[in-house]
Amino acid sequence: MQPFDIEVLIRGKKEVLLVIPDHESHKFMVFDGDIYLGTVLPMLEEEGVKWTSDKLMADELLAQIGDKIENHET
């Protein structure tokens, strides 16, 4: 899977983030330009896919990133 862009809303402003997938470890590195935001990981839980991050990230942003990755992957 190639790197891809996702569009998210950060403080009401549209931002384009770069996602670099690593399917073998089921993880996705997320960058805002040159800035590394964190590596996100989907966990399959009772309520469905829940996304976690190795770096502190606002829940709202993490949920948006997760939704966008899921949309990209289906």
Binding site: H26, P42, L44, V49, E70
Partner: peptide
């Protein structure tokens, strides 16, 4: 369409 299973296989109890 249960796409959630794409990321990992749930256990039997789930």
């Amino acid at each position: 369409e249960l796409n959630a299973m794409f990321y990992s296989l749930p256990d039997r109890d789930r």
